[in-house]
Each structure stands twice: as structure tokens, then as C-alpha cells.
């Protein structure tokens, strides 16, 4: 595969397959995995023994980094990703870029560009003002957590 050598997320070179795929933010993965874990709990006494190490580690990771420490707050959390998507999709970003911003929640324009350099380089004329507005929208939702 020729794309292997050129792979660079900073320039959004992640391969066609992943560019077209649905990208998931950590908080969304947390909901999916938590749901699956609950299903296992109903059918098995020891669900942690039923899942792979990859599942276990991923669940721990997304729980830790989706900024929801309380697993019971799933219903509240469910509203969060959809409103986040709605707001971020106004800015015509690639899913990968959206997810990086959603996961890392940069606070300044400078930080956002450092986290997702491709928002500047892909010639979509995102000026600092537009990025600033986007970050504002992002922080607004965060307040409702």
C-alpha cells in the first residue's frame, strides 16, 4: 500500500478508507462500549472475563478521557455528542478533525491549529476568527455537562 509511507494525520493523510469512515469521539466510544458491557452483564456473572483485553483497555481509556467520571450519567451524556456534531459540522471539517477537536477541547486558536494543523493547510480559508468562533461554540456545550 503506497499510502502507508505518506501517512500523516497532521495533513489529514489517513487513507481513503478512514477518511470516509465514521470517526468516533471518546465520549461516543464510551457510550457504545458501556452499552455493550451492560449487555454482557445481563448474560454473564463475570463480564470482564468475557471481553478481550483490547475492549477492557479501550473502555478504561475512553471513560478516563471523555471527561465523564460518572458512568450513570449516560443519558445526560447522550445529548452531548449529537449537539457537538451539529455545531462542529457547520465548519465543514473532516470527521477526523472534528474528533480531534472534540477529544482535546483546545482553548485557544493557536492551540487548535497546533492540534489540527490541517484546518489551516487544506486551503479551506479558515481564518483565525472562524476558528475562534468554533472554539467558543465548543466551550459553550462543555458548560452544560
Amino acid at each position: 500500500m503506497s499510502g502507508e509511507e505518506e501517512e500523516n494525520a497532521a495533513e489529514l493523510k489517513i487513507g481513503d478508507e478512514f477518511l470516509k469512515a465514521k470517526c468516533l469521539m471518546n465520549c461516543e466510544v464510551a457510550i457504545i462500549l458501556h452499552h455493550k458491557y451492560e449487555q454482557l452483564q445481563q448474560t454473564s456473572d463475570d463480564p470482564m472475563n468475557q471481553v478481550s483485553q483490547v475492549f477492557e483497555k479501550s473502555l478504561q481509556y475512553v471513560k478516563r478521557f471523555s471527561r465523564y467520571k460518572n458512568p450513570d450519567a449516560v443519558r445526560q451524556v447522550r445529548e452531548y455528542p449529537s449537539s457537538l456534531w451539529k455545531i462542529l459540522s457547520r465548519y465543514q471539517l473532516a470527521e477526523f478533525e472534528l474528533c480531534v477537536l472534540g477529544n482535546l477541547c483546545p482553548e485557544t486558536v493557536e492551540e487548535a491549529i497546533a492540534m489540527v494543523p490541517s484546518i489551516k493547510t487544506r486551503g479551506r480559508a479558515h481564518d483565525d476568527e472562524a476558528i475562534e468562533k468554533m472554539l467558543n461554540d465548543l466551550s459553550l456545550i462543555k458548560k452544560f455537562e
Binding site: E7, N8, A9, K13, I14, L24, L33, L104, M115
Partner: peptide, 15 residues
């Protein structure tokens, strides 16, 4: 399925 794929150039949080 849900997959986790790391990419060169990607910025993420880790423990």
C-alpha cells in the same frame, strides 16, 4: 465494528 487505529501525526491523550 469500533476500531482503534493510531496514525502518525495524530495528537492524543495517554496515561
Amino acid at each position: 465494528c469500533v476500531v482503534f487505529r493510531p496514525f502518525k501525526g495524530e495528537i492524543l491523550e495517554a496515561v
